[in-house]
Nucleic acid binder design. Sequence first.
DNA 1: TCTCTTGAAAACGTCTTACTAATGGGCTTC
DNA 2: GAAGCCCATTAGTAAGACGTTTTCAAGAGA
Lengths: 237, 237
Amino acid sequence: MSTQGRGLHGHVLDILGPEITAGEYPPGSVLRTDELAHRFDVSRSVMREVVRVLESMRLVESRRRVGVTVLPICEWNVYDPQVIRWRLAGADRPRQLRSLTVLRSAIEPVAAGLAARNATAEQCAELTECALGMVAHSRGQQLEAYLVHDMAFHRVVLTASGNEMFARLGDVVAEVLAGRTHHDVMFDDPDPAAVTLHVQVAEAVRERDAARAEELTRQITVGALQELDILAPRVEF
Amino acid sequence: MSTQGRGLHGHVLDILGPEITAGEYPPGSVLRTDELAHRFDVSRSVMREVVRVLESMRLVESRRRVGVTVLPICEWNVYDPQVIRWRLAGADRPRQLRSLTVLRSAIEPVAAGLAARNATAEQCAELTECALGMVAHSRGQQLEAYLVHDMAFHRVVLTASGNEMFARLGDVVAEVLAGRTHHDVMFDDPDPAAVTLHVQVAEAVRERDAARAEELTRQITVGALQELDILAPRVEF
DNA sequence: TCTCTTGAAAACGTCTTACTAATGGGCTTC
DNA sequence: GAAGCCCATTAGTAAGACGTTTTCAAGAGA
């Protein structure tokens, strides 16, 4: 599921983007538009469009007489979904997974609290449905079905918060959850305690108990962090 | 401080981007590359590069035989610093300011907690210095000088957290703080309670008291939210 | 020898033109 | 009325020429 297989432009981006985010060109490296165009066998026009996009992601900077310079990580637009996908697919996947999980631990509890205030009746119903789906598939090697409901659950919470910045993290959280199931070691069945917590969050939101929804969600994210510490301890801090 | 006045490309972007984020073209509106090129008096090449960048921000989508379609807000990359700047400069500034402040209230307490664990001795010193600077300029119409130290304080906390996702929000927080001082009604002097809280956060971080740093920062952000409610109640939720 | 000036080379920036390709809508046909 | 074909439309790609800025080095002068 690359972003835009459409067009030569998207194709080149799908190769060059991951290379840069993987750190194959150290910060300060200089690429030449013409060379890249030749390498990918595309016209300079196409190559220029690719560079423009990379530039808007702050992965590179283009300067006259110098070339296309790779920027240090601290400059990157690390919230760009495309950049996140590239990094998750690449070498510093563990690091990215950790920073995203920490991000979740900050965002989701607050989002859940807001959801308890702002969720529509329909969203409350969706939430309950997702939680029940998680329960239903929590035993007997049904990780895929479980994952679907888990992703949906968190997406509904973030959307129901009513804050667009939170809502936009739905995709990111989904990828983190999917990553946990697909790439990393995952226990045969999800932690029963976590399943229960999801059900309780749905309850709390339905009952408009913001404080409880927040606290329960905090427990979920703390659990996710601990799980990460067990599987891949001390990758960064 | 527009992103890149460099080049025709940047110039067109600085006009078209704000127009789109201001909602001047309702979602589903169709723009034609040729028309835009003619309107801005640039070549189609330049216009195509602009469209590519807008596309990477998910503000528009380009399809053959159709044109450049404006996407609904829910598709936008709302974490793109450029998009944030455009929106802050435009019509839905209040809405953007509110969602960013809510975001702050989720992120900063957690970041402060992490900072208490991870901050270097140098960062602790910087933090104290910033807090003292805030105190020094907290009375007598020195809002500008106060703002400088306030922005620096929060940037250091976010950086010291050691999480790159948090660190990258330094600019955003700075713009929110600057916006509060410059564009919105601001009391003559900053709230003394807030000043004290900053000093205490610096203390807590220095003493490695994560829980206290988190709780104190939570009070700061809650204050910011309340302030927003007083100045511009009920803009969205 | 050091500095300042000047010039040229290098790389991106822009424009133009031509051509290709896909796709949505209208037209025809059954 | 439905299905399928055809074409106008608009973006996608390519190639080449020229402009512009920036850097760096060579040369002139002190």
